[in-house]
């Protein structure tokens, strides 16, 4: 009897949860479906959900506009470049704070976090002027530098929380066996740190890919990543729903797939370890 009730409960919860989930997901699903419609079908006043003539022509059109691929490439270079550069700076820093903590380690960590609290608009003008004077406006290099600095505190923090979980005894054991500092890092730490570094990499590529304040303000045309390119669809091209949908689908698909793999790291990275 009790089992029956709980099965009924489970069925009710399942229906409700799927309903809500589909509602939340709907705008994305709708964009995905519209990307396979013709422009006429896309603005049909009696929209059809699945029963239309599926076509790939929007993807062809969008890809033939070679600038789409250029902007896609900009997004890849900027997000991966800034993440890798950030890791190169952050890995040694997080390593030293996790394994050779000093009196001020905690203060340094908190201070790094505080730089993240500075609203971007507070430093918009100086960064813009500095980039302009250095000839870095509308260049990938400029954006890589800016996004590296924007995300550096998050990278350091994530790595720190991962490194903290590597047991220190292992290092001491290695030292007892006569391992030097470099072999300690290479053979003992690195293998244990790889999963944490990979998660950090993943989350930061996602954050940098979607970053929309600096990418919109510091680029004009040649270095604009997808965030800026799609924003330029605002009007009147945005009224071509099918092409807009195809461009949007291609812009968000790679990152959404990466994102689904990084759900757990997301919580940890974005709450700076406050919720695990």
């Amino acid at each position: 009897m009790a089992r029956e009730a709980s099965k009924g409960h489970k069925a009710a919860v399942t229906v409700l949860a799927w309903g809500v989930a589909l509602l939340i997901f709907f705008p994305i699903l709708w964009t995905f479906l519209t990307s396979f419609k013709t422009e006429g079908e896309a603005i049909n006043s009696h929209p059809s959900f699945l029963f239309f003539d599926w076509t790939l022509e929007n993807y062809e059109t969008v890809n033939q506009r070679s600038d789409y691929l250029a902007h896609f490439w900009n997004s890849v270079v900027i997000s991966v470049g800034s993440t890798v550069l950030g890791l190169i700076i952050a890995v040694p820093a997080a390593w030293s704070m996790a394994f050779v903590p000093g009196k001020r380690t905690k203060d340094i960590l908190m201070w790094m976090l505080s730089t993240k609290m500075l609203p971007a608009v507070g430093v918009l003008v100086p960064i813009y002027l500095l980039a302009r004077d250095a000839g870095l406006l509308d260049t990938k290099t400029g954006l890589v530098i800016v996004l590296t600095m924007v995300n550096l505190p998050i990278i350091v923090w994530m790595l720190y929380t991962y490194f903290k979980e590597i047991p220190g005894e292992i290092l001491e054991a290695a030292r007892m066996d006569g391992a030097t500092l470099s072999s300690e890092i290479l053979y003992v730490l690195t293998p244990m740190a790889v999963p944490g570094i990979a998660s950090t990499l993943l989350l930061n590529v996602i954050l940098a890919w979607n970053e929309s304040f600096w990418t919109l303000n510091l680029t004009a045309a040649s270095a604009a990543p997808l965030t800026a390119f799609i924003a330029s669809y605002s009007s009147p091209e945005g009224l071509f729903y099918a092409k807009l949908s195809a461009a949007s689908t291609m812009a968000i698909a790679p990152i959404m797939i990466l994102g689904w793999f990084s759900q757990k790291q997301l919580v940890r990275g974005l709450t700076f370890g406050a919720v695990k």
């Binding site: 939340i24 997901f25 705008p27 994305i28 709708w30 964009t31 996602i206 890919w209 979607n210 929309s212 919109l216 997808l226 965030t227 800026a228 799609i230 924003a231 669809y233 605002s234 945005g238 807009l244 949908s245 949007s248 812009a251 968000i252 990152i255 959404m256 990466l258 994102g259 689904w260 997301l266």
Partner: peptide, 13 residues
């Protein structure tokens, strides 16, 4: 899923 959609895309859609 919506968290991974870049702001300009979600605004336009």
């Amino acid at each position: 899923a919506p968290f991974f959609v870049m702001p300009s895309v979600s605004a336009l859609v």
